[in-house]
């Protein structure tokens, strides 16, 4: 009898890329639900726009390269990129900006480098950085969370805001938008207000901004799910958040009146989301165990530096992109000791 032959091993674990990406998508759900709760339907519309754009461009690129687009779209990596980007965007961002950012992420940051696995930069963050640099006004115009404004955007309102630029209130944009907690903190600090004064505003919750901190909590839940499912390693998020908390803590201890607490830094902006969903993107992160600790910690430090002294309110995207560049070098210098290799062995 004749049989087909293949290279060993002849058994397969049940793991595959689609499953990995699918679980990350699943883990996004609580955070997305929280965003929807606090900021209304714009979040969902953004997600839809981004996913549509990502799938469309992946299909086009694969056709141009003469390949079957189905497995590439089916591995869910493009959709995940779209979702990670959409989640980071303000919920009333004009539709064409969302599509432009997603197209940049898929076309330039991912496919131009060769597609999944070959991109040196996190595509979602590359798209985000493009939008933030190009349209900073739109990109920093966030709605106030519904717990403060008392109003959550309905579908039609969100639709009109996104597609026609109509402000979801008769008093114009300024009535419904507000500074994000990080932005607010920095603005108020620049007016030489003390943190204790700043925090008296009803916009503040336990750690960060009201509403915002709960979005962070739900993303944290999703992140813990990923660690539990062993989709991501604990090293990068823990190192990143610990480093951020440590640096923030040092300044806070020096003068708590003008330096926000570590908890504020952890639960504001994209720190939690970035730590679990962005910095852990395996393609662009460090892969050695020690390297992951260094990589994560440096992101944390950069986040603090850019938040405090940089030109933009939040810093996760820039920090991650900067460390993406450093990841290969970190990996090179942190190769684990091979089994049986003598510790003293010089190389």
């Amino acid at each position: 009898m004749e049989f087909p032959v293949a290279s060993s091993p002849h058994l397969r674990g049940g793991n595959d890329i689609q499953r990995v990406m699918g679980q990350v998508l699943l883990a996004l759900l609580p955070g997305v639900a929280a965003l929807w709760w606090y900021f209304g339907w714009g979040v969902i519309i953004n997600l839809g726009l981004a996913i549509f754009t990502a799938v469309f461009w992946e299909w086009v690129v694969m056709r141009l390269r003469g390949r079957d687009p189905r497995p590439v779209i089916g591995d869910l990596s493009g959709i995940l990129t779209a979702c990670l980007l959409a989640v980071a965007l303000p919920p009333t961002l004009p539709w064409w900006q969302t599509m432009m950012g997603t197209a940049f992420a898929i076309l330039v940051a991912k496919q131009l480098f060769g597609g999944l696995g070959y991109n040196p930069f996190n595509p979602a963050m590359a798209g985000y950085a493009l939008l933030l640099i190009s349209f900073p006004a739109d990109m920093t115009r966030w709605l106030e969370p519904s717990v403060i404004s008392g109003h959550s955007l309905g579908f039609t309102e969100a639709w009109n805001a996104i597609f026609s630029g109509i402000a979801p209130s008769s008093q114009g944009w300024d009535a419904v938008t507000g500074a994000t907690p990080l932005d607010h903190m920095r603005t108020e600090l620049s007016r030489e207000h003390l943190i204790s004064e700043i925090r008296q505003s009803p916009a503040w919750g336990d750690f960060g901004g009201r509403g915002w901190e709960w979005v962070a909590n739900w993303f944290l839940l999703g992140g813990l799910f990923l660690i539990w499912r062993k989709i991501i390693s604990w090293r990068i998020p823990v190192a990143m958040l610990a480093a951020l908390a440590l640096v923030a803590g040092i300044f806070w201890v020096i003068d708590p009146d003008i330096h926000p607490s570590p908890a504020f830094h952890l639960f504001s902006g994209a720190a939690i989301f970035g730590a679990f969903f962005i910095a852990t993107d395996p393609v662009t992160a460090s892969t050695t165990p020690r390297g992951q600790l260094i990589y994560g910690a440096l992101i944390g430090v950069l986040v603090y530096i850019i938040r405090t002294w940089g030109g933009y309110p939040d810093a996760v995207a820039f920090s991650v992109l900067l460390m993406n560049m450093a990841a290969p070098t970190i990996d090179h210098y942190t190769q684990p000791r091979v089994f049986g290799e003598r510790e003293t062995q010089d190389e």
Binding site: V108, L130, I133, S134, F135, P136
Partner: peptide, 15 residues
Amino acid sequence: YPGVLLAILPPGAFM
């Protein structure tokens, strides 16, 4: 036209 600032900033030169 809102302008894509990225193009006139340094990264735009590389691209």
